[in-house]
């Protein structure tokens, strides 16, 4: 049984959270917290999708790529160069070409982000089922090296090459000690609105998230 208060929270969430309707007058939640949704989709699997996740998701959701028309390669080169030179995305020289290669492949796949979302939802476990015990920290470490290290750094201190360039900077994961498994898993799944932390629920399944959680627990003193 879930407690009544949690049920009510779910209810508020499920109604679309459309507070502040015009009828409410002026003294409404204007001064309140702007709760923006987490990214609904992520980059599809394929060679280079880690680069797209690492660089593009810093500043915008993957929808920006998947709402683009099928651009020729020259357009993607222009776009990536602009993101690098004008918008300050720290794309390394050796990553430029593989990143463009990936983006060009996204033209032909005709991705169906929502279908992907539905499909991946099947893999999501219900809250409460997961725990540190069910994950393998060694496997988590491998996942961390693939997805997290460029922002959070090799020791999880938030000092990765990209993490330091972010505002706010990437979180120091050695300070997670007091947070519950559930809170950490929620953040991994859904990202942190207002920061560059993306939602991983479409890239990592429940087991992988548990591996990652187990590894994160080894970072706290």
């Amino acid at each position: 049984m879930i407690p009544v208060w949690m049920f009510l929270l779910l209810l508020v969430g499920a109604t679309g959270f459309a507070w502040g309707s015009p009828a409410n007058g002026n003294d409404r939640e204007q001064g309140s917290i702007l709760n923006l949704p987490a990214d609904p989709i992520s980059f599809q699997p394929g060679p280079g999708n880690d680069l797209a996740s690492r660089y593009c998701l810093m500043c915008h959701s993957a929808e920006y790529v998947y709402t683009q028309p099928p651009h020729p390669r020259e357009h993607w080169i222009e776009i990536v160069n602009k993101m690098n030179a004008s918008f300050g995305c720290p794309i390394s020289d050796e990553d430029m070409t593989p990143l463009v290669d990936y983006l060009v492949t996204q033209n032909s796949l005709q991705p169906s982000p929502s279908a992907q979302h539905v499909q991946r939802d099947d893999l999501k476990e219900t809250p409460g089922q997961s725990s540190t015990q069910s994950g393998d920290p060694q496997k988590g470490k491998t996942l961390y090296g693939r997805h997290c290290v460029t922002c959070h750094g090799p020791d999880g201190k938030g000092d990765g090459p990209i993490g330091q360039a972010l505002v706010p900077p990437a979180a120091n994961l050695t300070l997670l000690g007091k947070q519950s498994d559930q809170t950490i898993l929620d953040t991994l799944r859904n990202g942190r609105p207002g920061t560059a932390m993306p939602a991983w629920k479409n890239d990592l399944n429940a087991l992988e998230l548990n591996h990652l959680l187990s590894f994160l627990r080894t970072l706290s003193p």
């Binding site: 929270l9 969430g13 959270f17 949704p37 609904p40 929502s114």
Partner: peptide, 8 residues
């Protein structure tokens, strides 16, 4: 907070 994000 994640529970309160709009429904997709």
């Amino acid at each position: 907070a994640s529970l309160l994000t709009p429904r997709v």
